[in-house]
């Protein structure tokens, strides 16, 4: 058996060494999680514009390309944000997968009988929900960004594309199920991230629970409402 003592020598970049540890990976998961939650919230709120009609959401989509106004060339700021988002997603996934394998290795034998006292459905299905949501995101990008999801698609007309896509019942159901799973994932994630980065105080811990409920509920209700609205004919063409 060995112990590790920090040795006094020149080191590699400290943050690479930090990421090598499991605690460091949890930090990265929390920070990228915050970025992804921020994106999800903005994405959901932006899409609410579909309730204001095609002009509203189509203009919103166009204005995303104009982010930064005349300060930067058109679409450049959007691309910087997209690259940041992809990087955050990649780091989140890499840390999640390596930690999951570490954790499986660390508990090789199962108990014959086990009653959990604190772990809940959300905390125990993070990796499964996360992988399903990641697969869903790939489909979602094909469906509504690249236009290769099988529905009628026209670049620059998100309202029409959304209606064409969500009119297909199996697709609408897939969106609903994936977003419910995302909500469960967010519930544990939004609570857990404070713990991972050490933002924790007995006075605020109850507040953290409410924050997690709130984030999960707001994003899920908003997102799930879109396919339902199309299926119910509230959001429709013409």
């Amino acid at each position: 058996m060995t112990t590790t003592r920090p040795t006094v020598k020149r080191r590699r970049l400290w943050f690479l060494e930090f990421y090598r540890s499991a605690v460091g990976k949890k930090w990265v998961m929390a920070v990228t999680g915050i970025i992804l939650i921020g994106y999800l919230l903005a994405h959901m709120v932006g899409n609410l514009k579909m309730y204001l009609g095609p002009e509203s959401i189509n203009a919103y989509g166009e204005s995303l390309r104009d982010l930064g106004g005349h300060l930067v060339p058109r679409t450049h700021l959007l691309w910087i944000m997209r690259i940041g988002l992809v990087a955050a997603t990649a780091l989140h996934l890499h840390a999640a997968i390596t930690l999951t394998f570490l954790n499986w290795r660390s508990r090789p034998a199962r108990y014959d009988e086990r009653h959990y006292a604190a772990a809940n459905y959300a905390s125990r299905t993070m990796i499964y929900g996360g992988v399903i949501v990641a697969a869903f995101v790939v489909f979602h990008l094909m469906d509504l960004t690249w236009g290769s999801g099988g529905a009628e698609f026209a670049r620059g007309l998100p309202y029409e594309n959304i209606v064409h896509s969500f009119e297909r019942l199996p697709v609408a159901l897939f969106y609903i199920v994936a977003n419910l799973l995302l909500g469960v994932h967010l519930y544990h994630g939004a609570w857990s991230m404070f713990q991972s980065i050490g933002l924790n105080h007995p006075r605020f811990n109850q507040w953290r629970r409410w924050f997690a409920y709130g984030i999960a509920a707001v994003i899920t209700i908003g997102n799930v409402s879109f396919p339902i609205a199309v299926q119910a004919g509230i959001v429709h063409l013409g």
Binding site: T2, T4, V23, R107, A118, R124, W191, S196
Partner: peptide
């Protein structure tokens, strides 16, 4: 640093289950 690094030689990582 050394307690965490030594811990990680033997044990899994915390995912905040609270068990």
């Amino acid at each position: 640093e050394s307690m965490v690094d030594t811990m990680e030689l033997y044990f899994g990582s915390c995912s905040n289950h609270g068990e």
